[in-house]
């Protein structure tokens, strides 16, 4: 069925208000929309890596999850959910579970790109019928904005501070979506909360209902870590896409599909200038950093076009 915002808005909320995420946080927006893609009659088992999402949505005795939820540690959400899925397979075979259960793991970029990478890779390779969602805000926000391997080059974080000698994080961002595509799993997609959320919703639906493992990498702006005013959440997300910093694409059984190509690809500085973490890039003498970032974005975009057979 074609995406219909009104129909989606009518579906039950599976993440309640009353969680303790910051005002204007991108992560719960992402999570809400992904859970909306579940069929209302399906039971969900959701896990989360330690991180903002987990510590804010399940503070004893309050849980914001209307489905079943499990958190065990930071680096193991891929493994934890895979155990639950394995138990489900047995119970289903034994006739102990009626209907369908879906398994969704959430992790921030810290819990996914870094400390949880091994458990994620293992779970995907083993072929569990599950979705792993990375809500990527580009740093360890829960502990106070430390750099991760998802942090863009030159970003100012509390462990890659823009100092007098070293101008922020000195390494480029790891391309996790690409790494997951190279696991040769049935479905991999990169998305972001954009406009009426069609892209995010449809990818979530495909990921959840494609048998086997699926991976979603979802940009989730963080007003504290990125340093912008909270109302601008959707603007930040949009600019990440319009500059091709964060292309929307999917890899279905190995086939690359670019879901959105900006008519005019905006310069990446239009995305960077909205954020306090890149403020130092706009000082006189630092133009080379902007040029370097632009080159990196262009090169990754060209590679993606080639993979999709569009270049």
């Amino acid at each position: 069925m074609a995406y219909n915002l009104k129909e989606v808005a009518k579906k039950p909320e599976r993440l309640t208000g009353g969680h303790r995420m910051c005002a204007g946080c991108g992560a719960p927006v992402v999570v809400r929309q992904i859970l909306k893609a579940l069929k209302p009659e399906d039971h969900a088992v959701i896990s989360s890596a330690t991180g903002c999402l987990e510590v804010s949505t399940f503070i004893y005795p309050y849980t914001a999850w209307t489905d079943s939820f499990i958190h065990s540690a930071f680096e193991n959400t891929g493994a934890t959910i895979s155990g639950a899925e394995a138990a489900y397979n047995v119970m289903k075979r034994k006739g102990k579970f009626e209907g369908e259960a879906k398994f969704i793991a959430f992790g921030g970029d810290g819990g996914t790109y870094d400390i949880g990478f091994q458990a994620l890779s293992g779970a995907m390779e083993r072929g569990h019928d599950m979705v792993y969602v990375c809500y990527d805000n580009g740093a360890y926000m829960n502990t106070g904005i430390q750099r991760s391997s998802a942090t863009p080059k030159y970003a100012d974080t509390t462990t890659s501070p823009a100092g007098k000698k070293i101008p922020g994080k000195m390494q480029p961002r790891k391309d996790l979506t690409e790494i997951m595509a190279n696991h040769h799993i049935p479905y991999v997609a990169q998305t972001a909360p954009i406009g009426n959320m069609k892209d995010l919703y449809e990818k979530a639906e495909k990921a959840i209902y494609t048998p086997g493992p699926a991976f979603l990498n979802v940009l989730a702006p963080c007003p504290r870590g990125w340093r912008y005013n909270t109302p601008d959440l959707m603007e930040l997300s949009k600019m990440a896409v319009e500059t091709c910093f964060w292309p929307l694409y999917e890899v279905i059984d190995g086939k690359y599909i670019i879901n959105y190509k900006p008519k005019t690809k905006l310069p990446v500085k239009d995305f960077l200038k909205l954020q306090g973490r890149f403020k130092h890039l706009f000082k006189a003498g630092n133009e080379y950093m902007l040029e370097e970032i632009q080159k990196e974005v262009d090169s990754r975009w060209e590679t993606l076009l080639k993979l999709a057979g569009e270049a």
């Binding site: 155990g83 138990a87 119970m91 293992g122």
Partner: peptide
């Protein structure tokens, strides 16, 4: 009748057991 999960580490072995047992299975 068991599902054997050939995990990629012992940390994941115990984590998968946690997920399976919490799901109502014997792990």
């Amino acid at each position: 009748d068991t599902e054997f999960v050939a995990v990629e580490s012992e940390h994941s072995a115990m984590s998968a057991c946690i997920g399976a047992q919490a799901a109502g299975g014997r792990a």
